[in-house]
Design a protein around this nucleic acid. Structure first.
Length: 372
DNA sequence: GAAGACAGGGATAAGCGCGA
DNA sequence: TCGCGCTTATCCCTGTCTTC
């Protein structure tokens, strides 16, 4: 259904009028898949689900009101697409943006009603979205409300991919990415058209990445239930092996139970800094850990887990920083740049998660077991 | 217009070493 | 002990960027 940007587009998709009914349309089969002669990295995913959702707002308690999915094969060719409205059971939010009024959504299915079909569209594919952390968060929360789990294990943000490719964009808005690849937006902020535009822009991006040998910025997606339970799980296991039950730790642990919490200050780490982390060795309590860039687990929860394990959360990198955690060490952020300058060890989120499971106790002076 | 996340930069505080 | 200078961490504000 996607137009080939190299040709006229008499078959360009018609953005459907808002209708409560969901629909799925198989894509025409390409006689010769363009780019099929290109050697393809074997490590690349076998399929993608390009997703766009419209929501009642941007907050954690906002709801999805429409969703669209373009399923693509390994090389970015469209297999089919799907679109649905969703009744959010509340006011639709910024109608002047998405145009979906309460009347239009009144007869739409609830998210729980479309969760199964949505899951079918997402299953066993990498979720692709523009500013993917936003779409993924919304989707994950909807599934959590429906007491289900979204069948998504990895996501790919097209903003991150365009940065990896070094595309000469004036900014990283979807419209700029579309314009770069000559993709015409017909109805911005309509989930189906935005997903179509993104799918069209993603295909050449994917091919460019494949031909240039660029790694794809894939991030792990964890169900909301795991996000909520993770920090507490570490605490229940005893977390820091010794001396971890300081008053601040206890107060903090009890405070952080539950799924979503407001932002707040974290108590100071009670352990001295044992120095830098060394490859092949465990983390030690008191190590100063800094984070940079997007993470698959909610950043605050990731920091909570580190704190509960007895690590110090640093907001910047210095010579004393024990470790920098980032999924994109080549991102060029101030933290990664400083870490490189200081020779600070850098690991990715997955490796950090492994290390968190076995944090060595702090080396406290004799007779002063980590109490404050 | 609002929300959220991130980064950068300036101001400030704290820690440390050194010398008087 | 005190003052000084340096380094580092932290806080706060601002700007950027995305989304709706």
């Amino acid at each position: 259904m996607l137009e080939d940007r190299t040709t006229a587009s008499p078959t360009a998709p018609t953005v459907p009028s808002a209708t409560p009914a969901t629909h799925a349309t198989p894509a025409p089969t390409a006689a010769t898949a363009p780019g099929s002669e290109t050697p393809w990295p074997t490590a690349y995913p076998s399929g993608y689900a390009v997703v766009d959702v419209e929501t009642t707002g941007l907050s954690r308690d906002d709801r999805i009101i429409s969703a669209a999915v373009y399923r693509l094969d390994a090389r970015g060719e469209v297999e089919d697409h799907w679109y649905t409205l969703v009744n959010p059971q509340r006011d639709p939010g910024p109608v002047w943006i998405h145009g979906l009024t309460s009347d239009k959504l009144a007869d739409a299915p609830l998210f729980a009603d479309i969760a199964e079909e949505f899951a079918t569209r997402l299953a066993d594919r990498v979720l692709v979205a523009h500013n993917a952390v936003f779409d993924w968060s919304m989707i994950a929360r909807e599934y959590a409300r429906a007491e289900r789990t979204a069948p998504v294990r990895q996501r790919l943000c097209t903003i991150a991919l365009s940065k990896e490719l070094g595309l000469p964009l004036p900014n990283h808005k979807l419209e700029s990415l579309a314009a770069h690849f000559g993709v015409v937006q017909r109805q911005a902020h309509h989930a189906l058209d935005d997903a179509r535009v993104l799918a069209e822009a993603f295909r050449p991006s994917l091919r460019a990445a494949a031909s240039d040998g660029v790694r794809l910025p894939l991030l792990e997606c964890r169900p909301l239930t795991e996000w909520s339970d993770g920090g507490a799980r570490i605490g229940r296991q005893g977390g820091p092996a010794t001396g971890s039950s300081t008053s601040s730790f206890s107060a903090y642990s009890s405070y952080q139970s539950g799924s979503w919490r407001p932002s707040r200050k974290r108590p100071a780490c009670p352990f001295p800094n044992p120095g830098r982390w060394e490859d092949g060795k465990p983390l030690k309590q008191g190590m100063r850990v800094a984070f940079s860039g997007d993470t698959s687990v909610d950043r605050e929860l990731l920091e909570d887990r580190a704190f509960e394990a007895g690590l110090h959360i640093a907001t910047s990198v210095s010579r004393l920083t024990s470790l920098l955690v980032t999924n994109d060490p080549d991102s060029g952020t101030s933290k990664t740049t400083k870490a490189r300058a200081y020779g600070t060890p850098v690991i990715d989120e997955a490796a950090f998660g492994q290390l968190l499971q076995d944090v060595a106790p702090a080396e406290t002076p004799a007779g002063t077991p980590g109490e404050r």
